[in-house]
Design a protein around this nucleic acid. Sequence first.
DNA 1: CTTGCCTCAGAAAGCGTTTTCTCAGGCTTC
DNA 2: GAAGCCTGAGAAAACGCTTTCTGAGGCAAG
Lengths: 344, 344
Amino acid sequence: MVRKSASGRIGIADVAVKAGVSHATVSRVMNGNFTVDPEIAARVRAAAVELKYQPNPVGRSLALGKTDTIGIVVPDLANPTFQAILRGLSRAAAQDGYRVLIADSFEVSSEETILAGEARRRCDGLVLCAPRMSDAELEEIAPSLRPLVLINRTTAAAGVPSLVVDYGQGVQDIAEHLVDLGHTRLAFLAGPPRSASNNLRLQGLEAFKTAHPQVEVTMLEGGSDFDTGHGAVDAVLESGATGILAFNDLVAMGLMSGLHERGLDVPGDISVTGFDDIPFAKYTTPTLTTAAVPITELGEQAWHQLRALIRNEESDAPGSRYQPKLEVRASTGPAKAARTAVHG
Amino acid sequence: MVRKSASGRIGIADVAVKAGVSHATVSRVMNGNFTVDPEIAARVRAAAVELKYQPNPVGRSLALGKTDTIGIVVPDLANPTFQAILRGLSRAAAQDGYRVLIADSFEVSSEETILAGEARRRCDGLVLCAPRMSDAELEEIAPSLRPLVLINRTTAAAGVPSLVVDYGQGVQDIAEHLVDLGHTRLAFLAGPPRSASNNLRLQGLEAFKTAHPQVEVTMLEGGSDFDTGHGAVDAVLESGATGILAFNDLVAMGLMSGLHERGLDVPGDISVTGFDDIPFAKYTTPTLTTAAVPITELGEQAWHQLRALIRNEESDAPGSRYQPKLEVRASTGPAKAARTAVHG
DNA sequence: CTTGCCTCAGAAAGCGTTTTCTCAGGCTTC
DNA sequence: GAAGCCTGAGAAAACGCTTTCTGAGGCAAG
């Protein structure tokens, strides 16, 4: 029985037989090695075309020690931020002939380490997106995951570049904007407690508070999706704040929807701000004031950093910091005369 | 020089040496083969742990002829529909220990064939999501891509299950809903011309028109994103229609935003409907009447079909048809007295 | 005419696993 | 006590490719 039918798929051996040459020569031709007689090369190519031969990437990977694939680990594929990063990463990597393997940890931080390790072994490099694991754990496993690029997280481990968005500055810009409009009572609708980007926002707000002691800033528990915003209406109203900084655009949209149901006007009664500037933010009613994060570009840059690591190039920048840009739209307006806390 | 330092990574050979056994025995232990003396097994396991040995998946894949990975090809990763399918697929596959490799064709139909082939060779199976290629091409390459599952597309090729959403029925349900509210002049804001799901909608509308000859239905060119809807305001107003069926929720949101800017009231002046019921649809202002598609579930089912194919099981269902469910919300209301065409 | 170099293709050795094949040693059974 | 089984571990082949090594043949130079 011929090898061919054994695997069911035609391999390099079949082409070699058909062209009357050795495996080695077929390999050389397929890889554009010019030390092959042009006539033989043509014969091999003809055989390959006729047999519709396509090299098996697994065999190739084993021989070359590389897979032309990179991995990305995200805490939640449903989150538009991670979707956008994935998109930018995938597009940029594709341009260099790399594919992307995805691993969704579903916010289970204990899974992250295992997922990351498994993904890394199948790939030539890894992007770890806002990992929820502890600093200690991250630092411990980082070396074994290299080449590794972090997004919205930093580590003390060496040779691991980080791409971080300056959420702290962004949230301060938003707060300043609200103060400029005359708001003196603000509220922050926080994100997931384990989220590093939420902590950065909190730090930014602390800085803001010391710079503006006259402004009252209420902290409210939250999350990262619509329901968080929608369910926070009562808490927001109770706080008596007239300017609300939502954790992100989704939360802001949920909140605006809830306020609308209560018959309140945005920004007439209350100003609402988001964060991220997802595409939807331009099309909400009213359009949403937010801080724009060039998130797709972040994914793209992640690939460039990772590529440099894989190629063992001098990483020109060992990481970067992105400044969000305030986008003033229609969901923020002048503060009404000071409101008093509303009950129920 | 020892093998160990040659590859930089520890392999099965290192464990074998450390435990004083052969490669074969290490492999047996790692794969839970019980024909190994418990004492030796323990020794091997201890060595593996001490060396932090993790089997190389590439070598494993080559030997086993499977990669425990599946591929998905989508026309546009930015599209929420495909994101949701990806999410459902990824989650379901992960539960069975499979990973997902993504390939984004960026709406370039000529790339699809190549991407699909490359992805397939790296994986154990493939999901082709609403491919834009021609029927002829699809039918030609389908056999070489098996195990293959199609989403929102069918083919005459054998052994290729399809999961399709009945967009035609969905669009009829929406149109009926608008007619029930008294609308007699409708307009359909179409999607991308090459999209199979758009064609299904058009067929549905033809069926609707023959059933309701008294209703006027205007066809408008379109696309699949916000800007399409936002930019279609003039055309919509010119049509004189009072009930607008947008291609999907994104287009509907863009349209509502544009109408709002023109000072028109939804649904007071014009009723607007979407399609898909993306999470945002519940939180627009007004909330969006749409046809809900269980899209994440679609991704999940795609995995189940693919799994059956991979395992060579009897595919219980050679494909399925999903019925969208009308979700009546606040963007549709009773028709005003017939409007006349508005210019400019 | 011979030596030596150079070109180019085949043989074979990896890459890191799994798995079949082989065989040594201990046990049962007559 | 010897013949045959059975258990369990090592040797080696296989997976499909790349690449080094080897060697045959052609050609130029002395």
